[in-house]
Design a protein around this nucleic acid. Structure first.
Length: 979
DNA sequence: GAACTTCCGTT
DNA sequence: GACGTACGGAAGTTCA
């Protein structure tokens, strides 16, 4: 939540000015961080400096100001002390340890190119007030970072105070509304309120017994401090008496807390830039080294202060077309109708709002079967506008799904009802009513499916299924659509999606999910505003949810149309959601006995390896602690200056350990330790994998129900979580054994595994149009041997195993942007040889080379890559001046369209296979997808037919210049089904 | 306790 | 000076 963004909506601005109360921040840092943990070896405390730097970094990151100034108090009194001798008595008593750090903070700011200001005779607060006033007048949105509430008097529509809460992180954006809400007075009246109440932090007494509440009441009653004093006699009771006795004090308070706004600072707001070229990197380097700050601190701080270069986030690509004013509209909540709490009325209600369309009657369950693709392409936005929003709440976890409530909105009206907790026991008295309601709801879902918008079809499907309902394919899914528009953005909630795509933000107080209410650290007591969220009803939350989905749909549908991605949504993503839902609900059956036996075996192996390692090491170190390993290996054993490193320390990863082992063949102890360590790593990992599987088994049905994430992988692939069933070991025999625990469940006889051979290479052959590569695939020969014979110019029969391996690695490396260095490393050959292999390869397949280059070139031109089916991925990194970032982006741009096209094809195949199995009335079902492999649980007697259908579905998912080759295997467990 | 790091499993 | 994509997840360590 950036206050800047909030304000940018209404008025034009010259930018954002951040004014920081230096003392306030330093104080906070000092007292928040224990000095013991933050001091140099020679005993200087650095906690305030460190905290100041990181806290300010955080604010820069979240608020992204483009101008910055820090104000400090100066030693020696101000006019305030003369008026009020005890003024800020508590602050003057700042510990020396903190005072010593202030000059260091100032030096740091100077090195970071930040203007800091202090002026004899004035407080930081006056400087801040002056700067804020100047900023506002110069047309800046101004943010004041201060823990001093006196700053609240500065707040206007264009001046926001960032006020730290309990944790510094949750800064409150104090706007006029926020002040009003919390104190019930306007910002300009706040000093009156503070004068009455006093300020214990500053050692300023107020009217005894009077807090914010009474102060506000009086101010609102009489208009302001002066008229309160005028009418002091009218105030009855103890408080009135106290007031009358404190009038002098209060007057004085008011004089003292008024901030000066016209101090002559001798600066121009426009000059208050920071960071960038103004950073003296060497000086910072020196300073941070002296303070013994880590590299992480340094890079974080430098990055934040480097500001400026912030790529305008790849906001919805269709935004240009949509027009800006549309984006900043406020959320309009639908009105909740309260007389549609049964299915019949709901049907009538919907019918009134959304009359059945002429021409196309109810049978409009429009899915992929809609062949008028082009027509649909341009028209989706219109259809979305006329559709209803459905939102089901509950739990969507497959295997544990639950349905709590169902809400619908259409044409600005909403209806919502709670689903009675399903008595999963047998019958009960209400069955008949439930049946009727159930039937009515299903009828509505069936009838309106093609005109319904949801956020997360698959999740909605699971929840409705728990209530015995089936949701046919909806018209639109804002979660999937958002993913297609910006696949690199991960929204975890509708709120986040709305914030990202629409610049719509809910009230600041209603932070999405994170239930933690943040209480301010007010010295003086309880405020009434504590239970804001508690007051929110489920209904109002749900109305907001519906409105956000509505707004998202209205924004995303035209954006998809504009990108020509509507078909991708309607004929790939939405249908595959349904298939995935089925897979998740089905789950994978496992042999528990087998799993536990394996777990125990791996545990024994790991323990043995651990004992051995401990014996060699001479101490019982934690073998899973990289830190302890580093110590043992590189210090105690004094051995081996390891070559690999990442972020400072020496790596202890497997390949490094293997290297070390090779180089220590003469050193019995080191070698023995390394070997045992590697063995422990291996077996312990396997144990852990098996244990995770055991823990994931649903006791209800003895099956593992993973969740396939459809909107996570930026390339278009699926991912699998909770547990991840896409990374079950397969590379070596020992690990692969785990697959034998995946078995057909009751009523099924075998597992079928079907996988695409070299899909990515085939896609490259098709997209590049390289005749040689196309021919290699069409020939049907051993592909890698064939290619090797072309590359090396020798007959196929003379190709050595080494040659085949090398060419194979080269082929696969292509799509990853593999460097010759990497290739050499992988094949353990000299870089020169790798270089030669690469040039020979490209000489043989020239068009492949051209194609790969064109991918990057196009991405650089367009800003994004596209798969065969129009799935996009944006690569802002291609324009980075940072080599590493740019190189990584180039590899991504190379890989994304290829990996993504493969993902598209597999998704199409899954829909085809799922439909084919259903259409044939078979009980067999797809249960897993591992990127290029499908696992099918085959029912009795269906093996042959299922194999046929799935193979066909996969082979003919798309028509390429080369055949799609699918290999299949059948077996009584997953391992045996491998081929 | 959250957030980050390191390591490692898959395609 | 780094050097193959895309992920999920466990365990240790550090932060606040």
């Amino acid at each position: 939540m950036t206050g800047a963004a909030q304000q940018a909506a209404t008025t034009t601005t010259r930018g954002t000015l951040l004014v920081v109360d230096g003392h306030s921040l330093a104080f906070r840092a000092f007292f928040a961080l224990p000095a013991e943990n933050f001091s140099t070896k020679d005993g200087r405390a650095t906690n305030a400096v460190w905290g100041f730097a990181t806290m300010l970094s955080q604010v820069l990151d979240s608020e992204k100001p483009d101008h910055l100034a820090v104000a400090f108090d100066m030693k020696g009194g101000t006019f305030r002390n003369q008026m009020l001798p005890q003024y800020k008595g508590t602050r003057e008593a700042a510990p020396q340890e903190l005072l010593d750090q202030l000059p260091v903070i100032q030096k740091m700011l100077a090195d970071l190119g930040v203007t800091y200001i202090e002026k004899q005779g004035f407080e930081g607060d006056d400087i801040i007030a002056t700067l804020a006033t100047m900023g506002e007048q110069a047309g800046y949105d101004t943010l004041v970072l201060s823990g001093d509430r006196d700053a609240f008097q500065l707040i206007t529509d264009r001046v926001t105070v960032l006020y730290p809460g309990h944790h510094f992180k949750d800064l409150k954006h104090m706007t006029p509304q926020a002040v009003e809400e919390k104190y019930h007075v306007s910002p300009s009246q706040y000093p009156d309120l503070a004068a009455l109440r006093g300020e214990t932090a500053d050692n300023i007494p107020g009217v005894p017994g009077v807090g914010d509440g009474f102060a506000a009441k009086w101010i609102n009653q009489f208009g302001g401090l002066e008229s309160i004093i005028e009418h002091a006699d009218e105030i009855k009771g103890k408080k009135g008496e106290a007031l009358r006795e404190s009038i002098d004090q209060v007057r004085l308070n008011r004089k003292v807390n008024a901030l000066l706004r016209d101090v002559d600072l001798g600066v121009d707001v426009d000059d208050l830039t920071f960071g960038g070229a103004g950073i003296d990197v060497d000086a910072i380097d020196k300073l941070f080294t002296d303070l013994e700050f880590g590299v992480r601190t340094k890079s974080k701080v430098l990055k934040s202060f480097n500001g400026g270069a912030r790529p305008a986030a790849s906001r919805a690509a269709g935004a240009d077309a949509a027009g800006k004013e549309d984006d900043d509209r406020a959320l309009t909540l639908p009105a909740l109708a309260d007389d549609v709490h049964d299915a019949a009325r709901l049907a009538a209600w919907l019918d009134a709002l959304m009359p059945a369309r002429s021409g196309k009657p109810s049978a409009d369950t429009a899915t992929a079967s809609d062949t008028s693709a082009d027509a649909e392409d341009t028209v989706l936005a219109d259809r979305v506008r006329a559709a209803a929003v459905l939102d089901v709440t509950g739990c969507a976890k497959p295997g544990r799904a639950r349905c709590d409530s169902i809400a619908l909105s259409a044409e600005g009206h909403a209806a919502m009802f709670a689903v009675p907790t399903a008595d999963d026991g047998a019958e009960d008295s209400g069955v008949k009513d439930n049946d009727a309601a159930h039937h009515g709801l299903q009828t509505i879902l069936d009838r309106y499916a093609g005109r319904i918008i949801v956020h997360g079809y698959k999740e909605q499907l699971h929840m409705l299924a728990a209530a015995g309902l089936t949701l046919p394919e909806p018209l639109f899914d804002t979660k999937l659509a958002g993913y297609l528009i910006d696949p690199d953005f991960h929204a975890e909630s509708v709120e986040q999606a709305a914030e990202h795509f629409l610049d719509i933000r809910q009230d600041d107080d209603e932070e999405p999910s994170q239930g933690q209410l943040d209480f301010d650290v007010d010295d003086d007591g309880a405020d009434a505003a504590a239970s804001q969220d508690a007051g929110k009803t489920d209904e109002s939350r749900e109305l907001t949810q519906l409105a956000m989905i509505r707004a998202l749909a209205d924004h995303l549908a035209p954006a998809l149309d504009g990108n020509h991605q509507s078909k991708l949504l309607r004929s790939i993503e939405l249908p595959v959601s349904r298939v995935l839902g089925g897979m998740e609900r089905a789950g994978a059956s496992v042999d528990m006995m087998r799993l536990t036996a394996m777990r125990d075996q791996f545990a024994t192996d790991a323990r043995e390896a651990q004992e051995t390692a401990w014996r060699y090491a001479g101490s019982r170190i934690n073998l899973q602690s990289p830190k302890q390993l580093q110590k043992v290996l590189f210090e105690d054993m004094g051995l081996k200056p390891t070559k690999k490193t990442k972020s400072g320390s020496y790596t202890t990863n497997a390949s490094a350990l293997q290297d070390l082992a090779l180089r220590t063949v003469d050193d019995e102890r080191a070698n023995g330790f390394l070997t045992a360590l590697l063995r422990h790593r291996e077996t312990n990992k396997l144990k852990q994998i098996v244990q995770t599987l055991i823990d994931a088994v649903n006791p209800q049905d003895g099956r593992i129900h993973t969740t396939f994430e459809q909107t996570v992988a930026a390339t278009g692939r699926l991912s699998s979580v909770d547990p991840n069933l896409q990374n079950i070991p397969n590379r070596n025999a020992e690990g692969r054994e785990i697959r034998s625990a995946f078995v057909p469940g009751d009523g099924y006889e075998s597992l079928l595994s079907c996988d695409y051979s070299q899909v990515e290479l085939r896609i490259m052959a098709d997209l590049s149009g390289d005749e040689a590569l196309i021919e290699a695939f069409r020939s049907g020969a051993d592909f890698h041997k064939y290619v090797a014979s072309l590359v090396y110019g020798v007959p196929v029969e003379e190709i050595t195993p080494d040659q085949r391996t090398h060419v194979k690695a080269m082929s696969y490396g292509l799509a990853y942007g593999l460097s010759t260095y990497g290739l050499a490393q992988q094949l353990k050959i000299r870089p020169g040889e790798a270089e030669k292999l690469k040039s020979q390869y490209f000489a043989t397949f020239g068009k492949v080379h051209d194609y790969l280059e064109s991918l990057v070139a196009d991405a650089r031109r367009d800003g994004y890559t596209e798969t065969m089916f129009g799935r996009r991925r944006y690569f802002p990194g291609l324009k980075s001046t940072n080599r590493n970032i740019r190189d990584a982006a180039e590899r991504g741009a190379l890989n994304a369209p290829i990996q993504g096209s493969a993902a598209d094809i597999m998704k199409i195949a899954m829909v085809r296979a799922g439909d084919a199995l259903a259409k044939a009335g078979l009980a067999s079902r797809i249960i897993l997808q591992i990127h290029d492999e499908l696992v099918v649980e085959v029912a009795h007697g269906e093996a042959e037919q299922v194999t046929q259908l799935v193979r066909d579905a996969m082979e003919h998912a798309v028509d390429l210049a080369v055949p799609l080759d699918v290999s299949t295997g059948l077996g009584s467990d997953w391992q045996l089904a491998a081929h």
